[in-house]
Amino acid sequence: MVVEAPEISVVVISYNMAREIPRTLFSLSSPYQTLCPRGRHEVLLVDNGSSAPPRPEDFAALDVDVAVHHWPKPTHSPVAALNFGLAQARGELIGAWIDGARLASPGLIDACAKASRLHARPVIVTENRHLGPRVHPLSLRSGYDRRSEDALLASIAWETNGYGLFGVSTHVDSAASGGPILESNAIFMPRPLWEELGGYDEAFDSPGGGAVNPDLLIRACALPGAQLIRIVGEATFHQMHGGATSGDPDVFDRVLIACSREYFRIRRKPLRPVRDPGWLFDARLGRVVSPP
């Protein structure tokens, strides 16, 4: 029997995210994702050494094709695990979730698929948002924690009201309106672009991957003929999980400084956000809204 490859692959990295991953995978499942019937996309969950690794049977009830992999050489950086996941992907359009604690909005996958048809060499980025009143390092200071986040999510019945997530989250940057963008936590590109890039650069071996995600975006946008496409009206929503850059506010700035230093050491140039406004694609309108 020949099993047809899906159109889209989504690679999700997990590390000690027993609370967050089931929600993330639900947000990538068919009933939640609009215009994504079973078979259109696959999810590759790559666990990077969790103390209680996720098992396939944990997600058997979800209406989505999930392949669970356990990266055999886990480190504090997710980069190798992520590249492993990218190598397993069968779809022609591949999205990467370097941080598995991110919920998707309901139209995200279809929007990225539509955007991928607008250009031969698209680099498709989605907005990063944090659940709660402020970005997580600041929310933490005012007492926001996993429990309050659980209550917040329950209060909007997000499973059936995915766009309600915008109302209980905060933007991290102005990426969705064409402003500077440092990284995208759900970035999609056609397979050939991933291959040209060689995936993520494993020279970045800091906890959490350091500046590897900004580096990938910078390198992707610099590919000859690449077109940056920013998705409007869809996003990922970060759940608080104490990851490398989202936990203790006093640690956050030092982590960002360490990322900057690592980038400077490896690339011999300062880390800079991508300032190219690219195209803003509103999937709900079905067109590029900027430039007009």
């Binding site: 940057d173 500077p180 440092l182 700035d253 030092r254 960002l256 400084i257 360490a258 990322c259 900057s260 230093r261 980038y263 400077f264 050491r265 300062p270 880390l271 800079r272 956000p273």
Partner: peptide, 23 residues
């Protein structure tokens, strides 16, 4: 120059001038 870019600049300053700086 926003606050995140300021912190990134702090990292480059640390590399360039061999110091540790409080953001």
């Amino acid at each position: 120059l926003d606050s995140a870019e300021g912190v990134i600049m702090a990292g480059v300053i640390e590399e360039e001038f061999g110091i540790e700086i409080d953001p």
